[in-house]
């Protein structure tokens, strides 16, 4: 079962040190375990662009599609036996201790 992990920070103002926020050990561990397929950090919401097409017209707006305190800071795609394993993997991500991780199952039929 594949899951998308949305790595969410709560905006700026982390109390965490850069070492605490370093996800590389987690990436290494989960890649070696065969759980993490891919993923990346993403730029801040202020660097985002939202695209819509309405009645054939392109609408481009700056910023994310939803203004929330929580901002997506990155994502990972993991392959796990079940949700319990996905939760375990997500709980070990450093951002889980300061921000939060949303676990979304892939659509399968």
């Amino acid at each position: 079962m594949k899951y998308l992990l949305l790595i969410c920070s709560e905006g700026q103002g982390f109390d965490a040190s850069p070492e605490e926020m370093d996800a590389q050990p987690w990436v290494d561990e989960m890649t070696a375990r065969g759980v993490r397929l891919t993923g990346s950090r993403t730029r801040d919401a202020e660097d985002a662009t939202t695209v819509r097409v309405r009645d054939g017209a392109l609408l481009t707006t700056d910023g994310p599609y939803a203004e929330t305190k929580e901002q997506m800071a990155g994502f990972d795609i993991i392959e796990c036996a079940d949700l319990d394993e996905a939760i375990e993997v997500a709980s070990k991500h450093p951002v889980a201790r300061h921000g939060m991780i949303e676990v979304r199952p892939f659509w399968t039929e």
Binding site: M1, C80, A81, D82, L83, D84, A86, E88, V103, P105, W107
Partner: peptide, 14 residues
């Protein structure tokens, strides 16, 4: 079904 919530007693840690 969609999120594959397992049918089992959780592991000891949780």
């Amino acid at each position: 079904r969609h999120a594959a919530i397992p049918f089992r007693v959780p592991r000891r840690e949780v």
